[in-house]
C-alpha cells in the first residue's frame, strides 16, 4: 500500500526538485549493515569459536545468503514506494538478472570457460585478463542486457534510475552467487558472511560503472564506444579484484603453525575499499552530470 501526500497544497521544495527515491543512501545503508553483520560474526567465531550443529549452520548460511536481498528489499524497494515517483521495476530487474545468472552465466563460466581448470595456476597477468574476459564480461554483460531491454528505454527518467536499476541487477546477481555458496557445503557462518559481502560489494561496484554508461547513453550523446568501454571497465574491475583479493588473503605454509588458514577478513577490507573507491568518484560524476543537466534545462527557453 502506498501513501502519498495530498496535492491540494504546494509540495515541499525538495520534493519538487527530487521526486524520485534516493539511491546512494540505501546503498550505503545496505553495505554498512552487511559489513556490521560480517564483522560481528567474524569476531564471534574468532574469539568464542562456537560449535554449531549442522542444521543450524545450514539455516544460518541460508539466512545470510538472503540478507543482502532482504536489506535491499527494505532499503531499496520498500523505501522506493515512499517516493513521489517511485521506480516500479526494481524487483523485476533483480529477479530477471538472478534468473539469467543462473541460466546463462554460471553454466557458461563452469562448463564452457572452466575457469577452475586453468586460472588458479596461471600467472598474475593471465589471471587478471582471464577473470576479466570470463567472469567479468559475462557478469556485466548479463546485467547490461537485462537493464537495457527491461528498463532502459522507458523507465530511465533520471541518472539516478541507472544507479537504482544497476544496484537491483547487482543484488540479483550477487544473491544467486550467495545462494550457491550457502547451499553447497557446510561452510561456517563467518566464511559465508565474508563471501557474501565480497560478492555484494564487487557486483555493486561493477554495476555502478555499467550504470554510468547506461545513464550517459540515455541522457547524453556520448561516443558509441562509451558503453563498451564501461562494460570493459566493469569486467576489468572484476578481473583485478578477484586475483587481488585471493592473492592477499591466501594462506602460506608453516610447519610451526598447526593451522594454516587464509585471512579472509582482509579480502573483505579489499572489497570495501574497491567499492568506496568506485562509488565516491562515480557519485561525484553523477552529481556533476545531474547538475549540468539541470542547468541546461534551466537555461532552455
Amino acid at each position: 500500500m502506498s501513501y502519498y501526500r495530498p496535492r491540494t497544497s504546494a509540495p515541499p521544495d525538495d520534493e519538487a526538485i527530487n521526486p524520485y527515491g534516493q539511491v546512494w543512501l540505501p546503498i550505503a545503508a545496505q553495505i554498512g549493515i552487511v559489513l556490521m553483520i560480517v564483522i560481528a560474526i567474524y569476531l564471534v567465531f574468532r574469539f568464542l569459536t562456537p560449535t554449531l550443529p549442522r542444521t543450524a549452520i545450514q539455516v544460518g548460511d541460508l539466512i545470510l545468503a538472503l540478507t543482502p536481498f532482504g536489506l535491499w528489499l527494505w532499503f531499496g524497494v520498500r523505501r522506493e514506494r515512499l517516493a513521489v515517483q517511485p521506480r516500479t521495476r526494481l524487483l523485476m530487474v533483480a529477479i530477471v538478472t538472478a534468473l539469467a545468472a543462473n541460466a546463462i552465466a554460471f553454466p557458461l563460466i563452469e562448463r564452457i570457460y572452466q575457469v577452475d581448470r586453468w586460472l588458479p595456476l596461471a600467472p598474475t597477468l593471465n589471471r587478471v585478463l582471464g577473470y576479466a574476459f570470463t567472469i567479468g564480461v559475462t557478469q556485466e554483460l548479463i546485467k547490461y542486457v537485462v537493464i537495457r531491454y527491461a528498463v532502459w528505454r522507458e523507465h530511465f527518467r533520471t541518472r539516478a534510475d541507472a544507479i537504482a536499476y544497476g544496484v537491483a541487477s547487482a543484488v540479483g546477481y550477487a544473491t544467486v552467487l550467495n545462494l550457491q555458496i550457502a547451499l553447497t557445503g557446510d561452510a561456517n557462518l563467518d566464511i559465508v558472511a565474508i563471501r557474501i559481502f565480497d560478492n555484494l560489494a564487487l557486483n555493486i561496484a561493477a554495476s555502478i560503472l555499467i550504470a554510468f554508461g547506461t545513464a550517459e547513453m540515455r541522457f547524453e550523446r556520448p561516443s558509441p564506444f562509451l558503453m563498451p568501454l564501461m562494460l570493459a571497465l566493469g569486467a576489468f574491475l572484476t578481473g583485478v579484484v578477484i586475483p587481488l583479493r585471493t592473492g592477499l588473503t591466501n594462506s602460506t605454509f608453516s610447519a610451526q603453525t598447526a593451522i594454516n588458514a587464509p585471512s579472509l577478513i582482509f579480502g573483505t577490507a579489499v572489497s570495501l575499499i574497491v567499492l568506496v573507491a568506485i562509488a565516491f568518484p562515480m557519485a561525484l560524476l553523477f552529481a556533476t552530470a545531474d547538475r549540468r543537466q539541470r542547468e541546461a534545462a534551466a537555461r532552455a527557453p
Binding site: 564452457i112 570457460y113 572452466q114 581448470r117 586453468w118 586460472l119 596461471a122 593471465n126 585478463l129 582471464g130 574476459f133 570470463t134 564480461v137 554483460l141 547490461y144 537495457r148 547513453m217 540515455r218 550523446r221 556520448p222 561516443s223 558509441p224 564506444f225 562509451l226 558503453m227 563498451p228 562494460l231 570493459a232 569486467a235
Partner: peptide, 29 residues
C-alpha cells in the same frame, strides 16, 4: 543512431570477449 550503435558495439564487444576468453582458455590449457 548513437544509442543504437552504442548498443551494437556493446554486444559486439561481448561476443569478442567470449572469443578472447575461449582463446585464453585454450592457449593456457
Amino acid at each position: 543512431q548513437r544509442q543504437r550503435w552504442s548498443h551494437y558495439f556493446t554486444l559486439f564487444y561481448g561476443v569478442i570477449a567470449v572469443v578472447i576468453a575461449l582463446n585464453l582458455r585454450d592457449s593456457t590449457l
